[in-house]
Design a protein around this nucleic acid. Structure first.
Lengths: 349, 349
DNA sequence: GCGGGTTGGGAAAAGGTTTTCTCAGAGGGA
DNA sequence: TCCCTCTGAGAAAACCTTTTCCCAACCCGC
């Protein structure tokens, strides 16, 4: 009876190293390295032989060793406090997409609103020598619960409040609002109301101001915006306020909403009152939260903040910072786009 | 006139190394390393002095160097194809939370449904010597578009179809469905209908079967489940099918829905017909998608799959695999929980 | 035949840490 | 005094790759 050999863990053989490639090709590691990186001088034949050997052996350079030497790890950290992910996820996907092609990987760091967690993540990333950090959040007027101001590495802020002097990317909320209101105007609507979220949000004011501006530019009467919550329930209440009065002559013929949930509430409340959308009243939302916008009856026209493009831009901006290109500090605003569905009358011809 | 010195890039001084700590403390790097790691033998006084020096200098060991030596990078990869993130995000947050405390960071890899992207991400992770991979998806009966079967490193599948022989974690859909149906029964409902998503989803059958089982165990008549789409619109249609017939004696007194969107559609359609929820008909959803569940009128009781707990478990399972603990292959099901709101009559006392 | 340039390739250091081995000195027993 | 054992600490190898420097051989023209 023989003792069984140690049962091999599933394919546990270690990765092949440059040294093994060199040995197999009968050259030194230095030559092997140069052959694979297109550096140094050697006969084309030697270079090709080494390359072929590496290919055959399935050699892949150890990124850790490379990073140690180059002082560049080809990783970045992505900080977020948006657990729910409605805004973060497209953003994160955009960052990751922009970077994966350049061989840069992204550490996911969910810091909630927890100082300790933030600290923990930042230290872990620093220890792992990330080349830079993208900080994202769920609103652009709040800081993440971490201090990124004195790091050795570049930081880009996307959809969250940047430190002074840092690079920040946000969506152009005012521009997005203009898109919506001007769309209404092109369709011939004139009495355009605005229903939005809590006054504590900076975006609420930015969007309301743009709405006001466009109305005034077109010499239209402008009332106070209705500010409440980011909820369907508030959409219902707002309809009561707007359409509760007897006599339909004062009723709006369009409602521009601060987000899609409010718009959903508005549309449902209008239907319950027998007011037709879009025939009697047009509705436009904000966020273009697809699953909500497509479930309203009729489907909701909405402003899209292009968050994955924002993420991509943030990733690229960080990369150029890492490469040492100076970037203009300050906040850069990226344009929104209007996604036309059926809640404000057919698209203009 | 003197030439200005090179303007220092913002705090560009490199991190302090062990060598510097050793020099400052007047010992060798070997001794310094041992002092900080609690290894080796030296006077308590020496150890303390070195520690103090390191603290003063803000020394943090270079994780890359450590990883290179220990053949353990304290990073794992997180693969997902759920860009929208409704399921992925809590899962991902769970994985990350479980691991950050152990000093393990998580690479975010969004592979969409793109083979090439999957390949790219997997190779990047392998190059960076991740210790293991968590694969997650948006449904448990589909593979990710990557082959993880012959990797050198352990893989755990969470909420996606595992390779045969691998470790997989999913929610207990049947158990979740039982929770819902049994809740109805406790409240005295007897004619419980089931409206769910497309028959192409495995979970649809698992949930429907559990519904059927509970009904039969309680000697209740069971009809065919209504299978359609995962949408509000289908919820409306299903109500037409269930409640369209004249004569309310055959009407259900409860509807168990395959997800929250269907439930939302059902509730809205019932209200439009003047059927009261929960007085006439109770409704329970699935997924506990908070933002939907809380916006229905009345707020929706729903089955929660505990996805962040699932993520946590997946992270821990991967870690023990990485540590060499053998794990039983196969699929482990984690319990769901019922979140009671107001759509099926007051919570049982 | 010889100096100078070129060509192909290797040796070695560097990056930061951990770990094993070695060693000098101190202390103790005979 | 001699031998042995401990104790505290350092030297060096190892992890894997890149890059700089160096060297031997060859070719050319004179």
């Amino acid at each position: 009876m023989s003792i069984d050999p140690e049962p091999a863990p599933v394919s546990a053989k270690p990765p092949v190293t440059l040294r093994e490639v060199a040995a197999a090709a009968g050259v030194s590691v230095a030559t092997a390295s140069k052959a694979l990186n297109g550096q140094g001088r050697m006969t084309a034949e030697t270079r090709e032989r080494i390359r072929e050997t590496a290919r055959l052996l399935g050699f892949r350079p150890n990124s850790l060793a490379q990073s140690l030497l180059r002082k560049r790890s080809f990783t970045v950290g992505l900080l977020t406090n948006d657990t729910y992910g409605r805004f973060s996820l497209p953003l994160m996907a955009g960052v990751s997409d922009a970077l994966v092609d350049k061989g840069v990987s992204v550490f996911l760091c969910n810091v909630e609103d927890d100082q300790r967690l933030g600290q923990l993540h930042v230290e872990a990333m620093l220890d792992k020598r990330v080349d830079g950090i993208v900080a994202t959040g769920k609103r652009i007027d709040r800081h993440l619960p971490v201090d990124l101001s004195n790091l050795r590495i570049p930081v880009v802020y996307a959809f969250t409040q940047p430190d002074p002097g840092a690079v920040g990317l946000v969506s152009d909320d005012a521009g997005g609002a203009r898109l919506a209101v001007e769309h209404f105007l092109r369709l011939g609507r004139r009495r355009i109301a605005h229903v939005s979220g809590p006054a504590s949000f900076a975006v609420v004011h930015a969007r309301a101001q743009a709405w006001r501006d466009v109305m005034r530019e077109n010499s239209l009467a402008v009332s106070e915006p209705l500010l409440g919550a980011w909820s369907e329930a508030w959409g219902h209440d707002a309809v009561e306020k707007l359409f509760g009065r007897a006599g339909r002559e004062g009723w709006p013929d369009a409602v521009f909403c601060g987000n899609d949930q409010i718009a959903r509430g508005v549309i449902d409340a209008l239907r319950e009152r027998g007011i037709r959308v879009p025939d009697d009243v047009g509705v436009i939302g904000f966020d273009n939260w697809q699953i909500v916008a497509e479930a309203t009856r009729p489907p909701l026209t909405s402003v899209d903040m292009n968050l994955s493009a924002l993420g991509r831009e943030a990733g690229l901006a960080l990369l150029s910072l890492v490469d040492g290109q100076p970037a203009a500090p300050g906040i850069r605003k990226l344009p929104c786009r209007l996604v036309v569905r059926q809640s404000c009358g057919g698209p203009p011809q």
